[in-house]
Nucleic acid binder design. Structure first.
Lengths: 244, 244
DNA sequence: ACAAAAGTGTTGCGTTTACACCCATGT
DNA sequence: ACATGGGTGTAAACGCAACACTTTTGT
């Protein structure tokens, strides 16, 4: 009943042989565009069901590198900034029957019914550099506003919530520069903080604080094309941290 | 060459059949006694080599419950306060050959050579209630001062360091009451903070801060038998949180 | 009496919050 | 000119750090 020439079949074969069973990685890839915090999601083939990108860990591969590999494949970027944030290990993370019912699995007898533990990573990436690419189980890969995420497959809504909470808690220790283009304005940076924190900030206090941190340098240029006063452009001084 | 009546053989058999491969749990069990922060370690049979307690996750078991089970077996306590703190997933976490050479494995052909990913949990337990119990690979289970831990097997020194860092960072959000007996004095509580943080605190400021938090209630009794002024006993108000 | 630890209050500093005004630009 | 957002300073509040003295008790 099994078509071993089916690309999915070959993939499962590979995963089954080379990867660790019962364990996966799920990635919450954060981007920032037009003052909106975004997450990269995948739509499964022939359905209207969305999920986070994810994958499996090879038996001989470090978990961090596995996460890199998986996220690279969906974004086209290398050397992403990744942060492990939680292990989701409930015995019943989600309703299995219901979930499999929603997906048109290309194969019948792949054993998908076993429980899976998932290691959650979030990534901070520069929106404009990402070239979203679906995998062969999915036919669409695109950004969604964090505020407008639909009901996802598995427990992925929950995972995004936990990722967001972690990001909020760790915001001041994370290299948020990865979410922004090389140059940006202070108001843009403030919007980024505001979207992540989900609250508004006082522009004057924000300015003071961010300047006191001494991580920014002001360029001589200003952002053109704005309807009002042209804001200065800034850049992060020596992006020293890459993968933490 | 394999003795299937050997208790270790049966254990390996069970683990191999029922548990998830390539994935384990390591536990850093913190206790506090005589103003010292302690960690529970195991000495392997016929050796002078020590390691953290650990174990495997059953295919149908939640990761948190697996951690509970493993720590319960070493401490004799149930409903421990546990906190997942990091996944150790390097491809080469430690020198395998060197490590296996140090241990007298009771069996020849158990495949111990594969890499293992480990989920790190720390536990906060009340020292005096613990009845340390070795497992069948080890012949001694006892507390060690955090400051005097020897070179351990695997990467367990590293894991303890990361656990301690996490605990320090999260100290104010953790139910440290679990590390103390039902009643205790303020100076004792201060010693606990100091040992975890690795620095001394101002008694006056500490007193104010801990009182302002409104988590303690003073009892009418005082600690007897002290060489000097008898300190009041305190208790944490309604230990609401158990396993967080 | 005295040594050693317990118990408490006051002050100052630095960080964060609240708040107001001028500037530049496109319409 | 005016509406809109950018850019900055100042004052009050709050939280944390520094610090000194009295109390109690065993020796």
């Amino acid at each position: 009943m099994n078509d071993y020439n089916h690309p999915a079949a070959r993939y499962y074969q590979e995963v089954s042989e080379q990867c660790i069973h019962y364990l996966s990685i799920d990635g919450v890839i954060f981007g920032f565009h037009q003052n909106q915090l975004k997450v990269l999601l995948l739509r499964w083939k022939g359905t209207n069901e969305w999920s986070l990108p994810g994958g499996f860990i090879r038996k001989i591969e470090s978990v961090d590198l596995a996460a890199q590999r998986i996220m690279q494949e969906r974004t086209g970027l290398d050397a992403l900034y990744l942060q492990q944030f939680h292990v989701f290990g409930e015995a019943e993370r989600y309703n299995q029957e219901e979930t499999w019912g929603k997906i048109n699995l290309p194969l019948q007898n792949v054993n998908w019914s076993a429980r899976t533990i998932s290691i959650g990573y979030y990534a901070l990436v520069e929106y404009s550099r990402v070239v979203p690419a679906p995998d062969f189980l999915t036919e669409e890969c695109r950004w969604w506003n964090v505020e407008a995420i639909p009901a996802l497959l598995f427990d992925h809504n929950h995972i995004i919530q936990v990722a967001l909470q972690s990001l909020r808690k760790q915001l001041n220790d994370q290299p948020i520069s990865h979410l922004l283009p090389e140059t940006f304005t202070i108001p843009e940076l403030q919007r980024l903080y505001e979207t992540i924190l989900g609250s508004t900030l006082d522009a004057r206090n924000f300015y003071k604080k961010i300047m006191a941190s001494d991580r920014l340098e002001r360029l001589s240029e200003r952002r053109a094309g704005t309807p009002h006063k042209a804001p200065f452009l800034y850049r992060f001084k020596s992006d020293n941290f890459t993968t933490e």
